[in-house]
Nucleic acid binder design. Structure first.
Lengths: 228, 228
DNA sequence: TCATGTGAATCTTTTCACAGCT
DNA sequence: AGCTGTGAAAAGATTCACATGA
């Protein structure tokens, strides 16, 4: 669920494809780490958990980076996807709300290694201020504007309780942040041009519960759809 | 598979709809908490962050729970959706991997209040054993089978490093778990009939980065939205 | 010979627009 | 008079299957 941005671009990559590019990138990094120089669409698709037709169609939106009869050069394709996503350099990120989840996010090494740098941790609660988490000091939320301006931050992460999320989002938007990753279980209202992605833990579990309930009922057939 | 061939099964709910039911449920809970007894599709859609046509179409797969000319009874619709999802009673859940993220998950109150009960916290690292997190003791991973059998656990959460995720999933599947929520950044191979959902924090940020990069390029398509 | 890249077909999801019920 | 519920149309995503070019 991202904001629509229309525009007639020849390079218009479908949203479903965009959502898979990071998966491909991670699979390529793993292959590269294993010393594999080249792969077929079949191999990469397996590593990424999709089928090869979908993979090839997805990659075709980026360009022709493979070699017919051979496959893909792992490093080359990896670079092309990283460039397309925009993670060839690090993005500065602020995290607001340093509770349990905020701590976990701040400590999550995957951010650093995948194109993001946590430049500030902010919390409204004075009791938290001064604590050092993953090498970064927790500061008052009121310093948001100052920090965003100084580090040219475009991406904000909200890990506050639901009640605070909208006002945090408003402040973020007000100081120029245009992408928000929201872990609070609330729907955010933001202006056009601001992207919001939501991660909701209990929502994911509820989707599993739905399918789980189906499985235990009837017993006629397991059905399912493969997931992932 | 499936073959929408005739036969009963009038109850086939599209996956896209299933993924939104928990969102509607949460919106309804909020409305109920605010003391609102009735709402229109327009109001509920706004609260859920979707448009009203989509909401009505989604609800139509469950049945006819509204009243034409009036709207929906909040409590009644809430119960119907909860029943459809299968969260009218609690599901027992085990969490494996009690690092930063595992701690945050164990402490996350949203699980308890939304249909899930954390019955065990498991970790392979003996240094963690015995610690009490959110009132639950961290136990050795080897007790998995015993605990799953005793509490009839169907849903497992993996919050381990990527390297351990597949072997944890194998053990879970081996003892009868058929739904897995995976926070480790790795693709899990599981048999048919087992559902896996993945939450990948840096993947979400990378999707935002893609759109962010687009915004800063060209500059032509910045705000737009209503304009064009 | 072989695997990519891609039109065409199929399936899914969203949106439209209004008939039908309160 | 108004809002739901739903066919039908449109848009989007996936899969098929093979021409294409290394």
């Amino acid at each position: 669920m991202t904001a629509r941005t229309s525009s007639e671009n020849a390079r218009e990559i479908p949203e479903a494809t965009v959502a898979r590019l990071p998966v491909y990138l991670r699979a390529l990094v793993t292959l590269a780490d294993d010393g594999i120089p080249t792969c077929s669409s079949e191999e990469l698709a397996t590593a990424a958990g999709v089928n090869s037709a979908k993979l090839r169609k997805d990659l075709s939106y980026l360009g022709s980076y493979g070699t017919r009869g051979v496959g893909y050069d792992v490093d080359y394709l990896r670079y092309q996807i990283a460039r397309e996503i925009g993670v060839t350099k690090d993005w500065p990120v602020v995290i607001v709300g340093i509770g349990n989840l905020g701590h976990a996010l701040a400590n999550y090494s995957g951010f650093r290694s995948r194109g993001f740098q946590v430049v500030a941790l902010l919390d409204a609660d004075p009791a938290q201020h001064g604590e050092i988490v993953a090498g970064v000091e927790v500061q008052p939320f009121d310093r948001l504007e100052e920090i965003v301006a100084a580090a040219d931050v475009a991406i904000g992460v909200i890990a506050t309780p639901a009640a605070a999320a909208q006002s945090v989002a408003d402040r973020m938007v007000g100081c120029g942040i245009t992408s928000i990753l929201n872990f609070a279980p609330s729907v955010l209202a933001v202006p056009d041009g601001v992207d919001v992605r939501k991660v909701d833990l209990s929502l994911e579990l509820q989707i599993l519960a739905y399918h789980e309930q189906r499985k235990s009922q009837t017993g006629a057939l397991l059905a399912d759809g493969g997931a992932a």
